[in-house]
Design a protein around this nucleic acid. Structure first.
Lengths: 200, 200
DNA sequence: GCTGTATGTTGACACTGTCAAGATAACAGC
DNA sequence: GCTGTTATCTTGACAGTGTCAACATACAGC
């Protein structure tokens, strides 16, 4: 009888994170409660507090996992090819797909829950900023000649990320941009960024 | 004795909205509860339910007020002048100021609270979309010659709004973009949009 | 085996939104 | 003025939340 109910769960930490991701997909951040999580893991309401300092800490770990995925996506991009526009378009497509296919994770990563209301853990801040740094490095590859006037690498990285990010937010929450428009608007955004790169 | 405590409040509807805006500024959306509102208005917990169907309805009215302000800001912009870049830069500055000076209202207007979790009222949807339409019209003024290839008025309106919006979100939540960077990044964003307008 | 620590449990508290039922004030029709 | 209807406000209740304190169990090291 190995599956008799044991007093100790075994690996509650990992189980909670796993269930949290699932609950996130099913009911969104608002539906994610520690009590539901505990029940799903077959454990009492306060058991999670032996593995996470509080709800905020659990959400931070969840967000860190997601950032690692995003970081991998960014690092795997190759914008050094000859056809710059095509490469950038492909990257944008992947970014949008990442955000729209797991909207709840994206919301958790960039949403106010952690960054404004709660307090993001140091590790989360580190991972998040590393992602941005890698993105900035990738965008830096795009510069092949002298920079046009009024264009600074860091500023362009920030502004172009804002474009991508804003697009994702509008898409996810369904404001002004529908899912059918996704491809068209993303192409327009790429045009925006490309135009800033070309001397004119 | 006109200020003796009367059974009926007088204009609880307006008072609640007013207190709600104040509470929003003080404690953010998360700190805004109907019970606190009722207490501030000097009324029992469930009194608000005689003036708003539920919390969502109250928040919708709050958001509608804010959208009317934003709409006025958009409509008052004049992008038809000779110095297009300067005019656009001025508009962007005003938009960013609107968002960063009342971040909680901006969050309410575009945040997930209403658009994803709750259900935005028909009136809210109408006002919000009108704002976007007016914005698109204003951006349309920018086109003075034939459109560059790969640029569509609607798509450019969506993409440029996404840029502005993404910038605001990153700024407000303090992700990747600090408040000191605001001016520089906004200028870069204007360059982005301007570049898409110029034939190249 | 004994002890200490990690883990899990129950009880409790202060919050939240919202419904049901009852109380009071204001007002319309006569 | 009186009466009935309606709008408004009240208390009571319920389910749900995060989190603390106190207690119980299991396991690891000696």
């Amino acid at each position: 009888m190995t599956d008799a109910p044991r007093y100790h769960h075994g690996d509650l930490h990992a189980t909670l994170l796993q269930e949290a991701n699932q609950l996130l997909n099913e009911q969104g951040i608002e539906g994610l409660s520690l009590r539901k999580l505990a029940e799903r893991a077959g454990v009492s309401r306060t058991a999670p507090y032996h593995h996470f300092r509080d709800k905020n800490a659990l959400l931070c770990e969840l967000a860190i996992e997601a950032f690692q995925q995003l970081d991998a996506l960014i690092e795997s991009a190759d914008l050094s090819g000859a056809n710059t526009r095509e490469a950038l378009q492909a990257f944008v497509r992947r970014y949008l797909r990442f955000a729209t296919e797991q909207p709840e994770q994206y919301e958790l990563m960039f949403g106010r829950t952690l960054w404004k209301t709660g307090n993001p853990s140091d590790e989360l801040k580190t991972v998040a900023f590393a992602s941005f740094r890698h993105y900035a490095e990738q965008v830096g590859v795009l510069f092949k000649g002298p920079l046009p006037a009024g264009t600074d690498p860091l500023r362009l990285a920030q502004a172009s990320w804002a474009t991508l990010h804003g697009l994702c937010r509008l898409l996810i929450d369904g404001i002004y941009v529908n899912r059918e428009d996704m491809e068209a608007v993303s192409e327009q955004s790429v045009t925006l960024i490309m135009a800033a790169l070309a001397p004119h």
